[in-house]
Simulated assay, not measured.
Amino acid sequence: MIDETVTAAAVCITAAIFSTLLKQYCREHALFCVLGACAAVGIAAAAYLTPIVSQMQELFAKTSLPAAYLEILWKALGICYITGIAGDLCQDCGESALAKTVELWGRLSLVLLSLPLLETLLRTVTEVLS
């Protein structure tokens, strides 16, 4: 695991150096260098999802919570990572307004995604209090 982490860090640092050098000549190529490194590391990181997903499913199976809650958790994590990376890429391109917009979209998506959980929580609290 340490070796893979060092490799991912090396890919990102190398891409950052190349991107910095390329920005002097062509900003578009610098952006594609960064996007390529992000894609490569992202795809490699996806390999770590299998054991994480199976462990989370095992833990969740031990509870009496509906499986839909775990699905909401995964969707929320996906939204967080996607909007975070997209916002950072927009920020790197000098587009701070776009970065804030994608972060706003992610936050609103999380609120919308969590509404069923909020409804269940409020229903449970109401039942307990009455």
Rank of each mutant, 00 (worst) to 15 (best):
L35V: 15
T20V: 11
T20K: 14
G106K: 05
C26L: 09
F60D: 05
L70S: 04
I43M: 14
L77C: 10
T50Q: 11
L117V: 03
A86T: 15
R107P: 04
L35M: 15
L65A: 09
A44W: 08
L77M: 10
T101R: 05
T101D: 01
I72S: 09
G36P: 03
A67S: 14
I79A: 10
P51M: 06
G78W: 13
L73C: 04
Y81P: 13
R123L: 12
Y69Q: 10
A76V: 02
R27E: 13
L98Y: 13
L22C: 08
P66S: 14
V102L: 11
F32L: 15
C33F: 00
G84V: 09
V102W: 04
I72L: 07
L108M: 06
P66G: 10
V34T: 13
L121P: 09
L59C: 02
S114Q: 09
I85Q: 14
C38R: 09
L104M: 14
Q55C: 12
G78M: 11
E103S: 10
V34Q: 02
L122I: 12
G42A: 11
L113S: 02
S64P: 09
L117M: 04
L22A: 12
I85P: 14
E119R: 09
M56E: 01
S109A: 15
S64A: 15
M56F: 03
T50M: 08
W105G: 01
T50K: 12
A44V: 12
V125F: 10
T101E: 02
L121I: 07
G84K: 05
G42D: 09
L117T: 02
G42M: 07
A40H: 03
L118V: 02
L31I: 06
T83K: 01
L115D: 02
W105H: 00
E28W: 12
L21H: 13
I79S: 09
L65R: 03
G36R: 08
W74Y: 12
L49W: 05
L31S: 13
L113C: 01
V102P: 10
L65H: 03
K75H: 06
K100D: 01
D92E: 15
L98N: 04
L115M: 07
I52G: 11
V34N: 00
T101K: 08
K75I: 03
P116S: 00
